[in-house]
C-alpha cells in the first residue's frame, strides 16, 4: 500500500496499481470455509472432472473479493469502497496468476462526497478478462 490517494490526484483514464493473485488449493479451501461455499468443483478434482471441467476452478466470489482487495488497498486508509462487483465470465485455475486491475472512468462531487467510478477486472494468463466489473469509491479531498 502506497500513501493516501486524494481525489485531486487522479484523472479519468488513470490505471490503479495492479494486484497480482495466485491461488493455491489451500487458499481455495480456506475460502470455502470462510465464505460457506462448499461446492466441490472448487477443491475436489475428481468431482470437478465429473462435471466436465478440466480441473478445480477458483470461486467467482473469491475473484470478486480480490477486486475488493484491489480497491481497498488503493483507497486506504481514508477512502471507502461504496460499491463494487463483477460478472463471472470465465474460469480461473489454481497456481495461475490472476491479475486484478482497474481504470478510472469518472470522477465527480456529490454533496460532500468525492466519488470515483472505475472499471475493474481480473485477467487470466491468456489476457482474457474473466471477471469484468465496475466500482464506485469515495476518496478524501485535499480541499
Amino acid at each position: 500500500m502506497a500513501g493516501q490517494v486524494y481525489y485531486e490526484d487522479i484523472q479519468v483514464g488513470d490505471p490503479i496499481p495492479v494486484l497480482r493473485k495466485n491461488c493455491s488449493t489451500l487458499q481455495l479451501v480456506a475460502w470455502a470455509g470462510a465464505s460457506g461455499d462448499f461446492y466441490q468443483i472448487h477443491y475436489d478434482v475428481e468431482f470437478a472432472r465429473r462435471t466436465g471441467l478440466s480441473n478445480i476452478i477458483v470461486h467467482g466470489a473469491l475473484k470478486n473479493a480480490f477486486l475488493g482487495q484491489l480497491l481497498h488497498d488503493w483507497v486506504s486508509p481514508e477512502g471507502r469502497i461504496e460499491k463494487f462487483g463483477c460478472q463471472y465470465r470465465g474460469m480461473d485455475y489454481p497456481d495461475q496468476d490472476i491479475m486484478c486491475s482497474g481504470v478510472i472512468t469518472r470522477k465527480y462531487v456529490e454533496g460532500d462526497r468525492h466519488l470515483v467510478e472505475l472499471d475493474v477486472w481480473t485477467e487470466n494468463p491468456s489476457g482474457q478478462k474473466t471477471s469484468p466489473g465496475t466500482a464506485r469509491v469515495s476518496l478524501p479531498s485535499r480541499g
Binding site: 500500500m1 493473485k21 487458499q27 480456506a30 475460502w31 470455509g33 470462510a34 465464505s35 473469491l62 473479493a65 480480490f66 475488493g68 482487495q69 480497491l71 481497498h72 488497498d73 486506504s76 486508509p77 469502497i81 463494487f84
Partner: peptide, 27 residues
C-alpha cells in the same frame, strides 16, 4: 482467505484507530 494485509480487518485497535467501531468486515 482473500489475502488481505490491512490490519483493519484483523485487529480491533487498528480498526478503532481508523475510526471504525470494531474490526471492519472485509469487502
Amino acid at each position: 482467505a482473500v489475502g488481505h494485509t490491512d490490519l483493519v480487518f484483523y485487529d480491533r485497535d487498528a480498526a478503532r484507530h481508523r475510526g471504525y467501531r470494531d474490526i471492519l468486515a472485509p469487502p
